[in-house]
Structure formats: structure tokens, C-alpha cells
């Protein structure tokens, strides 16, 4: 049994929120640089140049990459032998979000009620997902995601008879429908299987994978390549003004499902795909 104080968790979440909003992951930056060499459209190359310059300014001047500093998803993997002391873990995470958004001059984009729409004032609450895992470690991933891309999320409860082709058609259709709105070049997260909420969670988590890393399963990786090629035939390109690079990557995650169903979820992330992770392995590591 290892003990962690909630105050440390609050500190770390605050820092992760700030860093995620100022620092584009290096793998995403590399993918954008690489896209410049592939893009044929002059407008598209200019926009990719602006996006890379934007990332450099944000990192150097600690200005948010995007004014939509997002609603925060927090993915928590907590060892079953960890004891959290001094208060509620969820409250500690939300306190970290509130502090990070205040201290970092990040935009407060959350309204406390979806219909009555009064700003909560500190960008809370976050959406927190817990995984209990073996061991005595803790892993926190903070993912602020803007709603330009979040509003393009699609869920399809396909029939088993729709099969692989049906899945491809649904994913390409979702990217086509989104068009310029999610700020391409996008990363496409695809969740196949499970039930409705599992498919969506797989699709969302798939966005955390580096654009250069294919799925572990060879069949999933083959589907990713086929989907990327199909999506990049749509012609939207950077900023949606026309071009070859509509997506930097397509990431597929799968899960067992029911005999009667074939759920497919598509989560799009803008080129500003932001996330930061902290791993705790005991007090000595801090």
C-alpha cells in the first residue's frame, strides 16, 4: 500500500492543464512538419506553416495554442494498492483544473447547466474516467479538447451485416460531414465494438496515441491505413480550404461486442491535439 496526498494530485493536474494548453505534443508537431512536404495545395502549405508557427509562439510565450482551451477529460489509472489521503480524489482533480485554468489565463468555457448556460467560472467540472489497475502507481492524463472538433463526434450503431465496409463508409462519412469545421488536419479516433459508451470511449482514447504509432493488432493497423487513404481523398486539406492532408492519422481501437451489434464511434481532434501525462511511482520520484 502506498499513500498519495490529494494536494499533490491537485498540484499536478494544475500543471498538466497549463502545459497541455501551451505545448503541442512533439509527435503531433512532427506530423505537422511532415505534412508540409506532402501537401500539394499552396493555401494548405501556408496554413500548415501558420499552425507550426502558432505552436512555436504558444510554447515560447506560454500563450494557449487555441483560444478554445477546452473541456478537460482526465484519464486516471490508479493502482489498487494506492491509498489517496486528505480528501476526495475527484474533488482534488477538479481543484487542479480550476487552479490551472486560473493561473494559466486559460479560457473558462464550461457552463454549469447545458440548458440554463451560466459559466461555472473556473472551467470545472472535468470529465473524469477511472481505471483501477494492479499495483501501487498512479497515471494521470489531462486532455483539454475544444468543441469545434468535439461537436463533430459521430456514433453509429451498425448492423453486423454492414461489416468492415460499412464501418469504413461510416468513418469516412463522419469526416466528410465534419468537413472544415473541426480544424483539419485532424486526428481521427475510431472505436469499434463494445456498446455505445464503450465505442465512444475507445474513439476518444485513441486520440491520445502518437500519430506515427499504428495499432498493435495488424488487422486494425491495416484498417487504419485504408481509412487514412480514403479520408485524405476527401480534399478538405488544412483549414478545409482544399488540399491533400485532411487527416494526420486514423487510430482504430476495437473491443468485443454483442452478437446483434456493430457499434462504431468517431471522435475527431483538431490539429491542436493536446494532452499531457504524469506518472507517479512513489514519493521518491517527485
Amino acid at each position: 500500500m502506498r499513500e498519495i496526498a490529494v494536494s499533490l494530485i491537485t498540484d499536478k493536474v494544475a500543471q498538466l492543464c497549463r502545459d497541455a494548453n501551451f505545448e503541442l505534443p512533439s509527435a503531433v508537431r512532427e506530423a505537422l512538419e511532415e505534412a508540409k512536404g506532402v501537401e500539394e495545395s499552396p493555401q494548405g502549405r501556408r496554413i500548415l506553416g501558420e499552425i507550426c508557427e502558432n505552436a512555436a509562439i504558444a510554447r515560447e510565450e506560454r500563450i494557449p495554442l487555441c483560444q478554445d482551451t477546452g473541456m478537460v477529460s482526465v484519464f486516471v489509472e490508479i493502482g489498487q494498492d494506492v491509498h489517496v489521503s486528505g480528501g476526495s480524489l475527484s474533488e482534488a482533480i477538479n481543484a487542479g483544473v480550476a487552479r490551472g485554468y486560473k493561473d494559466g489565463y486559460l479560457r473558462k468555457s464550461i457552463v454549469s447547466d447545458p440548458l440554463f448556460r451560466v459559466n461555472s467560472g473556473d472551467n470545472t467540472p472535468a470529465v473524469i474516467h477511472y481505471d483501477i489497475v494492479p499495483g501501487d502507481g498512479l497515471r494521470l492524463t489531462v486532455m483539454p479538447k475544444g468543441f469545434g472538433s468535439e461537436n463533430c463526434t459521430a456514433l453509429g450503431m451498425l448492423k453486423p451485416a454492414d461489416g468492415r465496409d460499412g464501418v469504413k463508409k461510416f468513418v469516412v462519412g463522419a469526416v466528410d460531414k465534419a468537413g472544415p469545421n473541426p480544424c483539419p488536419p485532424v486526428i481521427v479516433g475510431v472505436g469499434i465494438g463494445g456498446n455505445a459508451e464503450k465505442a465512444l470511449l475507445l474513439a476518444k482514447k485513441a486520440l491520445l496515441r502518437d500519430p506515427q504509432t499504428p495499432a498493435v493488432n495488424a488487422e486494425d493497423a491495416r484498417l487504419e491505413r485504408e481509412l487514412l487513404e480514403a479520408v485524405n481523398k476527401l480534399g478538405y486539406g488544412p483549414g478545409g480550404l482544399g488540399g491533400r492532408v485532411t487527416a494526420l492519422a486514423v487510430h482504430v481501437e476495437t473491443y468485443p461486442t454483442h452478437i446483434a451489434g456493430l457499434p462504431v464511434a468517431v471522435c475527431l481532434n483538431c490539429h491542436s491535439t493536446r494532452h499531457k501525462t504524469w506518472e507517479w511511482r512513489g514519493e521518491d520520484d517527485e
Binding site: 502558432n54 509562439i57 495554442l65 480550404l241 483538431c270
Partner: peptide, 13 residues
């Protein structure tokens, strides 16, 4: 008129 989406730091300048 279209401005580049996601270039918030650059446009803020």
C-alpha cells in the same frame, strides 16, 4: 472571411 482555425496564439499577436 475565414481566419485560420486553431492559430489562436498567432492571431492573438
Amino acid at each position: 472571411l475565414a481566419a485560420t482555425g486553431g492559430a489562436g496564439a498567432l492571431l492573438g499577436r
